[in-house]
Each structure stands twice: as structure tokens, then as C-alpha cells.
Design a protein around this nucleic acid. Sequence first.
DNA 1: CCCCCCCC
Length: 376
Amino acid sequence: MDEINDIYEKLGGVISKDDFTRKVEEKVEQMSGLCDTRTAAMLVAHDLGVSDTGAEQQIQKISGITPNSGNVKLIAKVMTVYPAKEFNRNDGTVGRVANLIVADETGSIRLTLWDDRADLVKSGEIEIGQTFQIAGYVKEGYSGVEVNVGNNGVFCESDEKIEARIESRQIKDITNGMGDINIRARVLDISDIRTFNKRDGGTGKVANLLIGDETGKIRVTLWDELTDFTQQIEIDDSVEIINAYARENNFNQQVEMQVGNRGTIKKIEEEVEFKESFTPISDIIPGESYSISGQVSGLGEIREFNRDDGTVNMVSNIYVSDDTGRIRIALWGDHALLVDELDIDTNIEIIDAYSKSGFNDEIELSAGNRTRINVR
DNA sequence: CCCCCCCC
């Protein structure tokens, strides 16, 4: 308890030493181990209206934290808790590390807890929604600026009311290599769950969503347990994704969002707006993905064919016209069956079809399994 | 780490 003497001295006798010690012990108990004695003493002093306890430092708002902020003190709410991990140090001891995302009213930041503090994650004592007084040092981590809290830092539950803000990115601003992406968006398409063999011999699961906001749309890849989420949502639901990262896909060079074991996705009540943008048929050039809206102006037959790998598929061709032109659409797989339901002049939207130079060097659209077709 | 861009 000697460590709290200097704090008691600063109180100038507003309380007896015994009462102060008792209050500190109560505070430690209240915090159920989430607070060390010294920090508890500072909180008690603060409760008594004495804030000049020598360790007071201005509370830093998260939006103002930069890689050069050094030691910072903040009060923030836990938004995401990642599992604690153990690792072996060179000296033979076992280190522990855990990450959180915390937020205040100005933004969010990654918090890295070490050793004893990481153990609080492992023991389940840190929950989403709790608010903490935090003191740590800032450094540039592999996915951006983060606050590190080791054994010399402060990590202490606080009853301060924090209006936490997770800043959502807009889809148009997502670029290759970006990390810690938070986004709210509308679900436009949901894939089946596929399984695959991992390099290490295990089995993995993968599923995709297409999501959109006011600024665009992007494909999202969900891995392993997160694929179950595709069973819990429907098209036009809105979702919030926390901590995704963006990577360029290596087969068509599109930037996609990945949600791995560090990310979360959940349904939200707020409805995110999305408006499909349709390209005039005359503006279509080969090698891109397009959405068009028009009327059916030609109908072909369903045809079965064998692919090189021996599998059987089917295709039908239709033509669609708008005010600017007319284009052939190849409907692949199940889409081929649609010709039986269409008439000339039926209004149709072909969404996310791939353009290429086809038969007779004319540009055509391929409606494959990532294409949606609306008939109205 | 996973996958459509295939037909005549």
C-alpha cells in the first residue's frame, strides 16, 4: 500500500488515511481485478475531487492519436475482442497478447494488451460494451496505429459514459491492402458455402456476399465459421462489418473485402441505401462487369453443351435493347431456363454481367453465376 | 486459403 502514499499525500487531509485505504480496497474490489491498487488510488482521489495526483495526463481523443503520440491516456469503449494468443519469448517464458478494438466519440483504434492484461481477455473478463480508462504507448502495428498496454500501463474499468463511434468507410474508398475496415452496407447477393482443402491438409469453408452502399458495391469473402452468417441473412438486409481487410483478388484483379477470424459481421436494423447504376448499352466495352436495364428484343433456344472438362452445361441467348442500343446476352447454367418465361418487350435488368467480344466480334454480355436478373 | 467469364 506504500505505493498509494504519495497519492494520499496530495489529498491534503480531506480524508483519513484509513478511510482512504478502505476506499481504495473497495475500488479494487469493484473493479474485480481489472484495476491495480495505484490506479484505484488515483480514481479514489479523483472521486474526492482531487485530480492533481501527479499521474494525471490529458485524456487523448482517439481521432487525435498518431504514430508519434507516444504515451497516451484514453477512455474508450470495447467494440471487438479478439482471442488471446500465447507465444514463446527468447528467454523461454510464455508471452500472451490480445487485441481489442476500442472506440470513443471520435473514432476507434486497435488496442494490444500484453501478458497480465491479455489474460483478462482469456479469462473472459473483458466484454464488448465495457468502458475502460487506458494508458499505453502508441506504435505503428501491422494494420495501422495501435495502443499497447503492458504491465506498466493502465487498463481499468471506468463508469464514464462513452458515445462510441465506429467510423464506417464508404465502398468507393476501399483500396487494396487496407486493414481494419468497418462498413455498413446492404446485402445484394449471397453465395452458397463452399468447402475446400487447405494447404495444411485441413478443410476450409468459404462464402461470399455482394454488398453495396450509396457509393458502390464490393464482394465480401467470409471464411470458415463466419460462412454460417450467410444462412442468417437475406438479400436487402443491412449488415455491419468490423475489421475486414481489402485484397486484390488474384484471378480478376478486383479488390474484395475479406472477413477472417479477426473480423465480425452482424445484421443491423438501420437500412443502408443502395441504387444499382445501369450502363447505357452503347457504352459497353469488353472486359468489364456491367448492369443494364432494358427490354427483351430477341429470344433464342436453350442449348446443352459439353465443356472441355467433360461436364455438361446449358446456355441460351437473348437480346436486350435500351434507348441507346441492343446487345446479346448469353445466359449460362440455370439462367438459361429464363428464356421460357420471357416475352419480347419484357422489362429486364441484367446485373453484374461480364462483357466480352463474342460471336462475329460483337460485344456480348455473359450472365454467369454472379449475375442477377430481374424481370418486371 | 475459395472461385463464373463457357455455346454457336
